[in-house]
């Protein structure tokens, strides 16, 4: 397993309810993401544990893109990854964000 820790600036959406939410499943080519309230309203935190080694730059790109597209400041995203592709990572994060908005 490889671990990554990343903190990125992001806007905050006050209308999101402060709750924890788990989305996705740890299975081959897939991941789960646990969303929780974070320490800093202006930043979002990512904690990634991944089975695929040596992809930290790709992770950084995908997570930066996500943090810029959505107002996720003040949230922590903890990820258990079992080898998801960048497209799947983006999709799961987007879905988790949508679930946050609708729940």
């Amino acid at each position: 397993m490889e671990t990554l820790h990343l903190e990125l600036p992001s806007l905050q959406d006050d209308t999101l309810s402060p709750q924890t939410l788990l989305h996705g499943v740890v299975s081959s080519g897939n991941l789960e993401v646990l969303v929780e309230p974070g320490p800093d309203a202006a930043r979002c935190v990512f904690e990634v544990q991944t089975a695929a080694h040596g992809f930290s730059e790709v992770w950084q790109a995908v997570l930066c893109d996500f943090a810029s597209r959505h107002p996720v400041g003040g949230l922590t995203f903890s990820i258990h990854d079992a080898g998801a592709t960048p497209a799947v990572v983006s999709l799961r994060l987007d879905q988790a964000y949508q679930s946050l908005r609708t729940s």
Binding site: M1, T20, L22, V25, V26, E32, L34, E36, Q49, A51, S78, H80, D81, A82
Partner: peptide, 22 residues
């Protein structure tokens, strides 16, 4: 004992296999 409690399997971790929050 939901996922935020992070009670994951130490045995999977010992074998370097992916764990799950629940």
């Amino acid at each position: 004992l939901g996922p935020a409690r992070r009670i994951t399997s130490p045995h999977l971790a010992a074998l370097d296999a992916p764990v799950s929050f629940d």
